[in-house]
Design a binder for these strands. Structure first.
Length: 489
RNA sequence: GCCGCCUUAGCUCAGUUGGUUAGAGCGCUAGAUUGUGGCUCUAGAGGUCCUCGGUUCGAAUCCGAGAGGUGGUACCA
């Protein structure tokens, strides 16, 4: 032994270990969503985990803070590389790189881990699985509509029942038109107004009014400086974000009354009208996709339509209080992203959601998702001398498509039964000297035993009964195990 | 990033006006039961009392700094 300090066994913060239960849920969601996306004509396309840092966009590592926002390292040619923080930026790089050879519009979907180097919190990690779909090379509003329709259907396929989530849609051009109407002068004020609007669902109209004007002090005493709009401007903004409780066409009419006339606003209205029409013909009603003028999303990024998937299911925390889960995904039109590389504008639109976030949303809503991960049938190992017999049993079961294993630890039989129980094995198989000599095998139905044992208080009786246990001819093994598995369905 | 609160066993937590050997429940390991998962009983393992520094005869306890967690706020491509 040396005096070297022992390493502390812990995962870096913000990184998760995921066991079978979570992985099963994730895979199930991804399989279902992929099937929907492929049905819409989207092809699978993935990129590597690393990109050159300058390709990722605004968070460029510099010499002082190379890891701001992203995980970055220097390649042996001194170039900065960074782990991707989403799936969209790498796609833009790929499209710019291969634009000659790509059939356009290019429709693709992808899922995989992304990494963000920032402070983790509850439900917020530094590595998480994202699922993303994009159409690159179409400026048509119908491309947005199709992404929205697909998102709706994908989330439903993933396990969100109809009516439990809604896609809320807005258009950045409307917001820009609104800013003109409200008399916003510069970019600083513009950002402040958009941030204020974004908080409508949390702070309510009064909170937003304060943020639009002088500013607002929150419960912790922290003061957030306001946008400094005059009263008329603030009213216009509030009237705008207050629209959108009715049907899609009605919402557009209301908005037109407030901001109609500005060129950009009118363009946004026309796009939303086209999206409405396409959604209707795709069979997506207002209960699944609605216009909501208060949706903002990322400020620097989106150029046209923006969408956000909001969970409507009532969820509760462990104390039984209602919790609003809020956004489970979002997206929009980003026409400038490829132009960063080529100088040539390539219109694009997409939607992405966090897979583990969706899993926890479904769980919070009381949906079972891979909750009962069954273990294999466990063959009890009595003595090393009979290993050959044990392995012939698992071989038979595996050949029949039944997950099975020989217990390979060193514990006694009692511990082996406990092991089988804890792994949620459907059955344990006992092949001791007696059975081998008689050409028999003993099968214990662990599920049945679980049920029967609740009615037995006395231990001697419990042992006597051997609940759920049967000894049969060796040749009937597979059939008997199958029967147990079917009963457990 | 900024502000508040918290940190004692694998988990949930108790404790001490600063005083020998730091506790409980659950969980874990094993025995009662030499071939049987539950129940019951019994025993055992498991702790740098977050870290470093200070005050003190003496610190898990008081003070300071840091780390981690958490709630709010900011940001969220």
């Amino acid at each position: 032994m040396t005096d070297a300090p022992r390493p502390e066994a812990r995962a870096p913060r913000g990184f998760n270990d995921r066991r079978a239960r979570d992985l099963a849920a994730e895979r199930q969601i991804l399989a279902k969503v992929s099937a929907v996306y492929e049905r819409y004509g989207f092809e699978a396309f993935d990129t590597g985990a690393f990109e050159y840092a300058d390709a990722l966009g605004k968070f460029l590592p510099d010499a002082d803070r190379p890891n701001e926002g992203v995980f970055a390292l220097q390649d042996d040619d001194e170039q900065w590389m960074a782990l991707r923080y989403d799936l969209t930026a790498p796609l833009a790089r790929f499209v710019a790189e291969t634009k000659e050879g790509l059939p356009k519009p290019f429709r693709r979907y992808a899922f995989g881990p992304v990494w963000r180097n920032e402070k983790p919190g509850p439900g917020r990690f530094r590595e998480f699985i994202q699922c993303d779909a994009d159409t690159v090379g179409s400026a048509r509003p119908e491309a947005d509509a199709e992404i929205i329709a697909m998102a709706v259907e994908g989330l439903e396929a993933a396990g969100l029942p109809a009516g439990s989530a809604v896609i809320k849609i807005n258009n950045r051009k409307l917001l820009n038109g609104l800013l003109t109407t409200a008399g916003v002068q510069n970019d600083v004020q513009k950002l402040a107004v958009l941030r204020a609007v974004d908080k409508l669902d949390r702070l309510g109209p009064e909170g937003v009014r304060l943020l639009l004007g002088e500013g607002r002090k929150d419960e912790s005493g922290d003061f957030t400086k306001g946008a400094g709009l005059n009263a008329a401007g603030a009213e216009a903004v509030l009237a705008f974000v207050g629209a959108g409780l009715s049907g899609r066409a009605e919402t557009l009419d209301q908005i037109a009354n407030i901001i109609g006339g500005s060129a950009e606003g009118d363009a946004g209205l026309a796009e939303l009208a086209a999206i409405d029409k396409a959604l209707t013909s795709l069979g997506v009603g207002v209960e699944r996709a609605a216009f909501d003028p208060s949706i903002v999303r990322g400020l620097e990024y989106y150029t046209g339509a923006v969408f956000e998937a909001e969970l409507l299911l009532k969820t509760k925390d462990e104390k039984g209080r209602g919790v609003r889960f809020g956004s489970i995904g979002g997206g929009g039109r980003y026409d400038d992203l490829v132009a960063r590389f080529t100088g040539e504008q390539v219109p694009a639109t997409g939607f992405s959601f966090g897979v583990s976030r969706l899993v926890s949303a479904l769980r919070a809503a009381g949906r079972d998702l891979g909750d009962a991960v069954r273990g294999p049938v466990v063959v009890i190992a009595f003595t090393p001398d009979d290993m050959a017999h044990y392995f012939s049993v698992v071989g038979e079961l595996r050949a029949a498509g039944i997950p099975a294993e020989v217990y390979l630890g060193s514990a006694g039989m009692k511990a082996q039964m406990k092991y089988a129980d804890r792994r949620m094995a459907p059955a344990a198989i006992m092949l001791g000297g007696d059975e081998i000599a008689a050409g028999k095998v003993t099968i214990k139905d662990l599920d049945l035993g679980r049920v029967l044992s609740s009615g037995v208080a006395d231990n001697a009786e419990w042992r006597e009964q051997r609940p759920g246990q049967q000894t049969i001819d060796r040749a009937e093994l597979v059939a008997a195990v199958r029967k147990i598995l079917e009963a457990g369905q």
